[in-house]
Design a protein around this nucleic acid. Structure first.
Lengths: 191, 191
DNA sequence: CATCTAATTAGGTTTTAATCTAATTAGATG
DNA sequence: CATCTAATTAGATTAAAACCTAATTAGATG
C-alpha cells in the first residue's frame, strides 16, 4: 500500500460527521436525504462526505429510481484498518536483525553518552554500527565534507576512517567532495 | 470507545508526516533531532507531531539525559485500528434482536408484496412490526396527517389504528395534526 | 553558576477542509 | 415535453492545522 492511500483512508475517518455516517450505514443502507435528515445537515454536505467515503472505497452506492443508496464495504474497511499496524510490524528478516543483534552490538560499542568506543573489526558488527551512526543524517541532503567530519566527530575523533567506511559500504557516495546518503537498497547488509 | 477518541485517532494518522514518523519508529526508538533530520523538518514541527501522537496514546517517550526517545505503543495502535470495524459490526443485543427475532416476525406478518397481514397482538411482536413500518419515514421531517395516512395505507387499510400505535409507542408525536418521528431513544423497546 | 543541548512554547503564515446557499443536472414519471 | 425529486456543482465563509522563526525552558555537565 502506498503512503498516500493510507493517509487518505485515515484522513477520511478523521471526521466526526463521516464516522456518524458510517454508524448509520452499519445498520443498513440509506439514501442521502435520510442521512442528511438524521444528522441535521444539508444535502450538499452529505454529497461532500459521500464523495470522500466513496473515493477511499469504504462505501459504494446503488441507484434505485431517483434515489441513491449507500452501503459500507466492510471488507475494505477492515483491510484498510489493518494496513498500518501490519505495515509497521510485519516481521521480516531485517527486523530480526535489528532487534536481536543490533541492540546488543550497539550496547557493546556505543558508550552511554552516545559516543563510539571503537569501530568493530568484525564485518557484521561494523555494519550495524555504521547503520547506527548514519541514523542522524538526512536522506536527500547534500553534506560538504567539513560538515560530515563534524558530524562524525560527535561520535569519534577518527572521522576519516569512519567517513571512508561510509563510502566503502555504500551508505553514502561522494561527488566533488559533497556527500549524500545512498538509497537504503544500496547499503551493505549482513549476509 | 467514544466517538471523539476514535475520530482523533484517525485524524492523527491522517497526515503523511506522522505516518512517516511511525515508519521510522517502527525500526526502533529515535529522538526528536534524528526524526527532524531524516524528514527534513525543524524541531518545533516534530514537537507538534509528537504531541499529537502522544495524546492519542500510540507513542510514548523516555528521557535519557537531555534526549527524549520516542517509542510506538504497538498494542494501542492495533486496538485503536480495530476499533471502528468492531464498533460497526459488533453483534450486540439489539443486533441479535433485529436479526433473530425481527427477521422471523417480519416474515410472519409482512406478506411477500410488503403489505401487513395484520398487526400482531403480542406487544413484543407488535413493536417489531411498528419499527419495520416506520422505516420508510424520515427523521426530522414533518408529515401532515393526510400524508401519514397515505403512507400507512401502502401497508394496511386500517391507517387509523396503526397511526395511533405509532403515537402510543412513542415512535412519533403529533402537534396540530402534524406528525414527526421521535428520536430513537424515545421509541418503545422490547424489554 | 555558566554553558551546552534538546525540547518546547509563542505567534504568524498558508493550506486544507467542513459547511452553507443558490444554481444546476440527472432520472423518473405523468 | 413539463414537472418532480434527489443529487451534484459552484462559490463563499470559517475553522482547523501544518509548518516556520524566534524566544524560552529543562536538564545535564563542567
Amino acid at each position: 500500500m502506498q503512503l498516500n492511500r493510507l493517509v487518505n483512508f485515515h484522513k477520511t475517518l478523521g471526521d466526526p460527521t463521516r464516522i456518524r455516517i458510517l454508524s448509520l450505514l452499519a445498520t443498513g443502507p440509506l439514501h442521502g436525504q435520510a442521512i442528511a435528515g438524521k444528522l441535521g445537515l444539508k444535502a450538499p454536505t452529505i454529497t461532500h462526505h459521500m464523495t470522500k467515503l466513496r473515493d477511499t472505497g469504504i462505501v459504494y452506492q446503488r441507484r434505485d429510481k431517483n434515489t441513491i443508496y449507500y452501503y459500507i464495504d466492510e471488507k475494505k474497511l477492515r483491510s484498510y484498518s489493518e494496513a498500518l499496524p501490519n505495515m509497521l510490524y510485519q516481521p521480516n528478516y531485517d527486523k530480526e536483525d535489528d532487534s536481536m543483534k543490533m541492540h546488543s552490538v550497539v550496547n557493546n560499542f556505543i558508550a552511554p553518552d552516545g559516543t563510539l568506543k571503537h569501530l568493530p573489526s568484525q564485518r557484521k558488527k561494523k555494519i550495524i554500527i555504521l547503520k547506527h551512526l548514519i541514523n542522524g543524517l538526512e536522506r536527500g541532503k547534500k553534506y560538504p565534507e567539513k560538515e560530515i567530519n563534524e558530524y562524525i566527530k560527535k561520535f569519534h575523533p577518527d572521522f576519516a576512517t569512519i567517513r571512508r567506511e561510509f563510502i566503502i559500504n555504500h551508505f553514502m557516495y561522494r561527488e566533488n567532495n559533497i556527500y549524500e546518503l545512498n538509497p537504503e537498497e544500496m547499503w551493505a547488509t549482513i549476509e
